[in-house]
């Protein structure tokens, strides 16, 4: 107990100490300067936003406050008057989607409709749908190309749009460390954009390239903003969080068809309630030879493909 060496208080202050003091001060100043961009960043953030609870923990009152705040933020940051609602899953509904590969011509109108409906970042031409031009006679994605830029359809090709498959065993949900993404009772896999920490593990886990990250703050002119928004779907996402296809839940939970289906000029898309035996989607499953992508992964997608012939 008494062999301690060099007790601090017993030393005299020297020039060396003064220099050290100056050095330390300079260091702290440099550190503050280096981190200055953080100050600018926090100007767009509010304490309420920072402290906001997880979606599932919000009481109806909390939620109303959050929605009002988000509308206000959209007005401040984007200059648009929007309405942000929260639509809940309907009982007795589980959504399914099917796509007729014989009919799709690869015009990418669906991707464009998604871009507009879901208030995607304009400069990056973001969309939840990626359309692949595939070689006829092969389902090998390696022969696919999403960057085709010639009139479609080409004779020896078929076209395969890919979006979120809303799997029954979604790996993206299992891997999320903070439960920021989950599967809703109607089968839709959603993200709480105000809870996601942006680690992108879900993006690595998804085998369908269905998830997108907001690499920057989305840019979108006020007049192009779709004002009918909902918390879990198409409200303008914050920077640095994941987003994904929600089957347009702000539309589909109100009984409407998703935007990509309405935009499809050829009627290649079929959407409906898998639990309703009379629904169109059930008829596809009953009448057509249906397949899912990467079935061997065992993820049980709710997005089906079929050929007419």
């Amino acid at each position: 107990m008494n062999t301690e060496t060099a007790p601090l208080e017993s030393r005299d202050w020297t020039r060396r100490d003064a220099l050290k003091g100056i050095g330390a001060t300079l260091g702290v100043a440099a550190f503050a300067k280096a981190l200055a961009p953080l100050t600018e960043w926090t100007q767009d953030l509010s304490v309420d936003q920072f402290l906001q609870k997880h979606y599932k923990e919000l009481s109806p009152m909390d939620l109303a406050i959050v929605l009002a705040r988000l509308e206000k933020e959209t007005k401040e940051q984007y200059g648009a008057d929007v309405s942000i609602k929260d639509y809940k899953a309907q009982p007795g509904v589980k959504f399914g989607y099917a796509l007729n590969l014989s009919i799709c011509i690869g015009c990418r109108k669906c991707a464009e409709a998604c871009h507009i409906e879901n208030n995607h970042d304009r400069p990056s031409a973001q969309s939840y749908i990626r359309v692949f031009e595939m070689q006829k006679g092969s389902l090998d994605m390696e022969k696919g190309n999403a960057h085709y830029d010639h009139p479609v359809p080409q004779k020896d090709k078929f076209y395969m749009p890919v979006q979120c498959h809303h799997c029954d065993h979604p790996p993206c949900v299992s891997v999320c460390p903070v439960e920021a993404t989950w599967k809703e009772p109607d089968g839709i896999v959603v993200v709480d954009y105000n809870w996601c920490i942006g680690c992108r593990y879900c993006e690595a886990a998804c085998p369908y390239h269905a998830r997108r990250f907001n690499w920057t703050k989305p840019q979108i002119p006020a007049e192009e903003i779709n004002p009918d928004q909902s918390y879990l779907s198409n409200r303008i996402r914050p920077q640095g969080v994941m987003e994904k296809c929600t089957f347009c839940l702000h539309r589909t939970r109100n009984g409407k068809l998703p935007a990509c289906l309405e935009a499809c000029p050829t009627g290649a898309r079929v959407f409906g309630n898998l639990l309703d035996p009379n629904s169109e989607i059930r008829k596809v499953l009953a009448e057509k030879r249906v397949f899912v992508l990467k079935e061997e992964l065992g993820l049980k997608p709710n997005f089906f493909y079929f050929f007419d012939v």
Binding site: H54, V178, A180, I197, G198, V241
Partner: peptide
């Protein structure tokens, strides 16, 4: 992290810690 300000969401008790499902 895209949102380092939300680091607290990872803290057990405060946030929602998806244990044991997430390997992270």
């Amino acid at each position: 992290l895209g949102r380092p300000d939300r680091f607290w969401h990872l803290l057990p008790g405060l946030g929602r810690f998806n244990f044991p499902f997430s390997m992270l």
